[in-house]
Deep mutational scan, measured.
Amino acid sequence: MEVRTIKVFTTVDNINLHTQVVDMSMTYGQQFGPTYLDGADVTKIKPHNSHEGKTFYVLPNDDTLRVEAFEYYHTTDPSFLGRYMSALNHTKKWKYPQVNGLTSIKWADNNCYLATALLTLQQIELKFNPPALQDAYYRARAGEAANFCALILAYCNKTVGELGDVRETMSYLFQHANLDSCKRVLNVVCKTCGQQQTTLKGVEAVMYMGTLSYEQFKKGVQIPCTCGKQATKYLVQQESPFVMMSAPPAQYELKHGTFTCASEYTGNYQCGHYKHITSKETLYCIDGALLTKSSEYKGPITDVFYKENSYTTTIK
């Protein structure tokens, strides 16, 4: 009895394709271990004539594949690729409408935090270190965002349907971005203890939790000093293409032309909904596939993004 075979390709990165001759009487799992086709788990399936010449994702289970996976995804987590594939199996079914010149995501599976993050990423200057993220990001900007969303979920250790947080998501993504040249110098002034300067680099240099107003941050924000008295913390120097200011959701007025974009969060910790506000020729609110415009805006804002380049204080 002759062994019926077909020729397929296996890959971990969709760049390096490895030619395989597979036995049609055995499952993919018996031949390769966990195997995925377009995100779908085909591990328990036997090869079919229609699979001839198709590319299958496999887990990096030998040295060659491990090197290829690390170079593309910059992670050695053995569960990463499987999590990416199972997320992709959902995100490829989502709709990605162009809204006001940006790629958004039609609401499904509690994905409003991903839509808000995706919209924000198209408006701030950011370059990702893992080629996987950078490639998928370019495709997302062009309207094909399924891979990018699935990668975000995998890097953030999230599953489809789980509630997510924009600030946490951005923080994970910033860790995989090139923020080497970003720098922030802060000064804390206390009447009792004097003053202390701190220099922050990388992710810490672009994120701040405690106030939404970048102007206020430049002037000074009140913080408790270690001595128990009130101290003032203010920005001395900022070198970065953008800054992200966050605070627990509270009524906040966004003035046209003073910011790049913002995240609105309605609801409580267990259950809520994100919308995205962007400042173009007027203010726009993007909620999944829905767009509304207004000249002014007041609502429960939790993150505001500002364009920056270089700032030095005039406070002496």
Score class of each variant (00 low, 15 high):
6 I>V: 15
6 I>W: 08
8 V>T: 10
8 V>L: 10
11 T>A: 05
15 I>M: 14
16 N>C: 09
17 L>W: 11
26 M>L: 14
28 Y>W: 13
32 F>T: 14
36 Y>Q: 10
37 L>R: 13
38 D>V: 11
39 G>P: 05
42 V>A: 10
43 T>P: 05
44 K>L: 12
44 K>W: 09
45 I>K: 08
45 I>M: 13
46 K>S: 13
48 H>F: 12
49 N>T: 13
57 Y>F: 15
62 D>T: 14
63 D>S: 10
64 T>W: 10
64 T>D: 12
66 R>F: 12
66 R>G: 10
72 Y>Q: 12
76 T>D: 10
78 P>E: 12
80 F>E: 03
84 Y>E: 09
84 Y>I: 06
88 L>F: 06
91 T>A: 06
93 K>A: 10
98 Q>F: 08
101 G>R: 09
103 T>P: 03
104 S>H: 01
106 K>D: 14
112 C>T: 01
120 T>W: 09
121 L>S: 05
122 Q>W: 00
123 Q>H: 06
129 N>K: 15
131 P>L: 05
142 A>H: 15
148 F>R: 03
151 L>M: 07
157 N>C: 07
159 T>F: 08
160 V>K: 06
162 E>H: 01
162 E>Q: 12
167 R>L: 05
168 E>I: 08
169 T>K: 00
173 L>H: 00
173 L>S: 03
176 H>G: 04
177 A>Q: 05
177 A>M: 03
181 S>N: 15
182 C>D: 07
183 K>E: 05
185 V>G: 02
193 C>T: 04
195 Q>E: 14
199 T>R: 08
205 A>M: 03
206 V>W: 01
207 M>G: 03
209 M>H: 12
211 T>M: 09
213 S>C: 05
213 S>V: 01
216 Q>W: 04
217 F>G: 03
221 V>R: 00
223 I>M: 09
223 I>P: 00
224 P>N: 14
226 T>R: 14
227 C>V: 03
229 K>W: 03
232 T>P: 04
236 V>D: 05
237 Q>L: 12
243 V>A: 01
245 M>N: 00
250 A>C: 14
251 Q>L: 10
252 Y>I: 10
255 K>N: 06
256 H>R: 14
257 G>P: 02
261 C>A: 01
264 E>V: 10
270 Q>R: 11
271 C>Q: 12
273 H>P: 01
273 H>I: 00
273 H>Y: 01
273 H>F: 02
275 K>Q: 01
280 K>D: 04
285 C>K: 00
293 K>D: 13
294 S>L: 15
297 Y>P: 03
297 Y>F: 11
301 I>E: 02
302 T>K: 01
304 V>G: 00
306 Y>K: 13
308 E>L: 09
309 N>L: 02
312 T>Q: 13
313 T>R: 14
315 I>R: 15
